[in-house]
Amino acid sequence: MPVSVRAAPFEPYAEVASHQHAVFGASGQFGATAVFVGTMRDFNEGDSVQGMTLEHYPGMTERHLETICATASGQWPLLETLVIHRVGDISPGEAIVLVVVWSAHRQAAFEACREIMEALKSQAPFWKKERLATGTRWVTGNTAGYPASKS
């Protein structure tokens, strides 16, 4: 159930393939793999965004990501999870976050992947600072993940 916070760009689908091979090899015990990739947009709140810097709290961030994955593993019958999150200077089009869940069946994989991502967004200490043509600004909120009735 590894979590990783990285300053260097990563290729999310290569990470999925290599981790799956390392953990499961050629076995067929998993029947469902749910993957979420968050990618940096080049727009926000009506402005063109040239890049951003993502700050985190070393130690606390990793601890919360591990807790989030452990909680999901207690809630659904998961075989494996993988979370990779970028920090530092990020350009539009680069992957920011990867959440992968392997399970025997799709319901657990879909639901756990969603829940891990939503918990990450609301609990893990990350802070975004956007670079605009006019300067920089801290992002103070986020787009809704769940419908308003559930959030």
Binding site: S122, P125, V139, G141, N142
Partner: peptide, 25 residues
């Protein structure tokens, strides 16, 4: 490294952090 209420007592060796709401919400 755990969220806490402001009234939490502090002990020797503690690490206390203050920060804005996380960007996720």
């Amino acid at each position: 490294m755990d969220y806490c209420p402001p009234e939490t007592p502090v002990f020797p060796g503690d690490e206390i952090a203050f920060f804005p709401p996380v960007t996720g919400g």
